[in-house]
Design a protein around this nucleic acid. Structure first.
Length: 682
RNA sequence: GCGGAAAUAGCUCAAUUGGCAGAGCGACGCUCUCAUAAGGCGUAGGUCCUGAGUUCGAUUCUCAGUUUCCGCACCA
């Protein structure tokens, strides 16, 4: 599989510009991508490392509407913040671009046009309901009306909940827009689809046969499952006003679907880079001798392994990814990272709280990277890895070597003289590390690579302990010269080999030993520091992290947890209603008599309720929160005069009232005393 | 419900084409003193998720199941 590539294009998933960057993004995508990029650069290879903000899509328009600002203002805010924190953190993008940039609109537009003109799309025009108040086409679910089969008045555009029939919006009698309540008008709308199924044989050959052994198991398995299940055409356009305009006559009010638009962002970012540097962008995307690698999280596998490659293949002039080393997810203190729950360590906050400690976070996230399964980040582990590994093993070895050299030889590299067996062995072992580390990086095993780097520092510590130069200095100065020369060679090697992982510390170390500009091929050398070479004043590479610092961070998270529980910002009150509206509702106390899970669903329980009036069946979406056997006999509140509704083929007669918190967790609203079934709730 | 991946020492991870299960960190003990009380050496810790099957032998292969995460479906 080892083709001879001339250059490498590395892409990292475009972060969505509706929130800042957190450690999950870093561990999954940006840190490994950066290590890879830095490593290849040190090998003297031609590398282009691409990043950028993904700025289109519905969530951004929703956020803008909520805050009363324009979508552009939303993305501006996060784009610059993200860009800056990446820079400070040392993610060495050659370009960090954005999808709202003109160059992207142009690129994505051209890309679409080419596929359109060469007949790669399926075109489908249909009549769809249009809400003239909101100036938009309505999704099926946003249209309600009377079901033509059973006469139920609140059927949805896709299905009647009463009789269970699948509907199309056009069949509804008296359709209404769920957004404005107005009568929508019918308009023709055309959309374009990418027929993924046409590429099945090609995908099978390319991935299932061609990358069986070199792609990660999770990536390969996921792709196989998609292909095996059969691919379907996928719409590439949608009716929305925020995004890249569909470049076709009469396609006003349509934009490219984000999933189509975003990956093209990698290409436009490359063009952006080209415009800024004057270098040609095309070889990085179109030369067969270019290795394209996508760094992503596991949620993005299908897009990068199936959809985007199909787009590139359909376009015809682009190369395909050589590998897609998707990572799993990182948790934080035993809980899923969540932007909405503010459960995260935000990069911009970390950089403020731990100035100058970029490498510590890089180290922890690499050593504990979710390469094969989800992992957990804890502040205790963060502290331990800094104090017990980075500082105690790496920092300490460097420091003791430099301090000894300063003490005995005024910080001048001593002559080496005759090598004894132990020293010889140490140098030989040292020389093996560049290859060991390279091999791990090239297989995208960064955790292993980093651990080998630490082993080199361990080798140094062990060597010093065995040789005891602090004793020998009294009797045999010549021997001490040998020992420190050898130790210094190990230090020099560390300064080179650690650059991809710990760029800030590597640089500092290189300055301390006054040795810069070395490349990967120099590593392993046993004479990097020449005798007589003057070293600079030694300084600590890493500082101890005290308990109170991490306790502060833990406290911050505890506060967040508290906030999430207590001060959940309640949703604003709904429209006022009249008393008579309330009186229309008949809510009673009831008792659950039977409960069982509805087959083939995740959320539904089928309940039999004694309402005092009768015994009836109700289907309720609570299976994720209650075990059927636990709730039998439970008192509940039930709305008894709600029109019956068919769920999964079961008639649900009424609705159990539930309280819902902001995470979507549900709990019963029950009488606090043992009231008779059928008691009215007013 | 369907599909994918994962489950190994207190924690984070290795390994095995089927043959006494290994490392780092933590714990405990010993020890050097050049070094940021750091380093070095050693000890304890495992029914390799569960159950069945194939085999002389299974952590590894097969089947069934459990749990976690992701995707899809479904659902508010």
């Amino acid at each position: 599989m080892s083709k001879n590539f001339k250059r490498t294009t590395i892409t990292s998933a475009l972060p969505y510009a509706n929130g800042p960057i957190h450690i999950g993004h870093l561990a999954g995508v940006y840190v490994p991508a950066d290590i890879y990029a830095r490593y290849l650069r040190m090998r003297g290879e031609d590398v282009l490392f691409i990043g950028g903000s993904d700025e289109h899509g519905v969530p951004i328009t929703i956020k803008a509407r909520k805050e009363g600002i324009t979508p552009q203002q939303v993305v501006d805010r996060y784009h610059y913040q993200i860009k800056e924190s990446f820079e400070t953190f040392g993610i060495s993008f050659d370009i960090y671009s954005r999808t709202s940039a003109p160059i992207h609109h142009e690129t994505a537009s051209d890309f679409f046009k080419k596929l359109f003109e060469t007949g790669k799309f399926i075109e489908n025009t249909s009549q769809q309901y249009y809400d003239e108040d909101n100036n938009q086409f309505l999704a099926d679910r946003y249209i309600t009306g009377t079901c033509p089969h059973c006469g139920f008045e609140r059927a949805y555009g896709d299905q009647c909940e009463n009789c269970g029939t699948s509907l199309s919006p056009l069949e509804l009698i008296n359709p209404k827009s769920a957004l404005s309540g107005n009568v929508p008008v019918l308009k023709d709308t055309t959309h374009w689809y990418l027929p993924l199924e046409d590429y099945e044989p090609w995908l099978t050959k390319w991935i299932l046969e061609g990358h069986k052994d070199d792609w990660k198991a999770n990536v390969y398995g996921q792709v196989k499952s998609w292909i095996d299940q059969g691919l379907k055409p996928r719409a590439v356009t949608r009716d929305l006003d925020w995004g890249v305009k569909v470049p076709i006559e009469g396609a006003d009010g349509k934009v490219l679907y984000v999933w189509f638009d975003a990956p093209i962002g990698y290409i436009s970012a490359t063009k952006d880079w080209s415009a800024k540097t004057g270098k040609d962008w095309e070889p990085y995307w179109k030369s067969a001798d270019t290795k394209l690698v996508h760094f992503i999280g596991k949620d993005n596998i299908v897009f990068h392994c199936i959809i985007f490659p199909v787009m590139l293949k359909a376009e015809g002039s682009y190369i395909l990814p050589e590998n897609v080393p998707a990572n799993e997810f990182l948790n934080l203190e035993n809980d899923k990272i969540s932007t909405s729950r503010n459960w995260a360590v935000w990069l911009h906050e970390y950089l403020e709280d731990f100035p100058g400690k970029q490498d510590v976070l890089r180290y922890v996230l690499t050593a504990n990277a979710p390469e094969t399964k989800d992992n957990d980040f804890t502040w205790k582990d963060f502290q331990a890895r800094n104090n017990n590994e980075l500082l105690a093993i790496y920092g300490n070895f460097v420091n003791r070597t430099l301090v000894l050299t300063q003490k005995y030889f005024n910080s001048q590299v001593p002559e080496r003289g005759e090598l004894d067996e132990i020293s010889k062995t140490a140098l030989e072992e040292m020389a093996r590390y560049p290859e060991i580390i390279s091999a791990a990086i090239e297989r995208y095993r960064f955790r292993e690579a980093l651990s080998e780097l630490m082993n080199l520092a361990r080798l140094g510590n062990k060597y010093l302990t065995e040789m005891e130069p602090w004793k020998l200095i009294k009797t045999d100065e010549e021997k001490v010269k040998v020992i420190l020369n050898v130790s210094l060679q190990i230090v020099a090697n560390l300064s080179v080999l650690s650059e991809p992982f710990l760029p800030f510390s590597a640089k500092k170390l290189q300055e301390m030993i006054d040795l810069t500009g070395l490349l990967w091929k120099d590593a392993g050398g046993d004479n990097l520091l020449k005798p007589g070479h003057q070293l600079q004043q030694p300084d600590f590479l890493f500082a101890r992290i005290e308990d109170e610092e991490v306790e502060k961070q833990v406290q911050k998270l505890l506060d967040t947890k508290k906030e999430n529980q207590n001060a959940a910002p309640a949703k604003p009150a709904k429209e006022p209603i009249e008393f008579e509206d309330l009186m229309k509702m008949d809510i009673r106390t009831g008792t659950i008599l039977e409960a069982e899970k509805v087959p083939k669903t995740k959320k539904l329980l089928k309940l039999k309720i004694d309402t005092g009036i009768d015994q009836r069946t109700v289907v309720s979406g609570i299976a994720e929160f209650y075990e059927p056997e636990d709730i039998i006999g439970h008192k509940v509140s039930i709305l008894v005069n709600l029109a019956p509704r068919k769920l999964k083929g079961i008639d649900s007669q009424g609705m159990i009232l539930m309280a819902e918190d902001k995470d979507g967790k549900l709990c019963f609203v029950s009488p606090t005393e043992d009231f008779n079934n059928g008691s009215e709730i007013k």
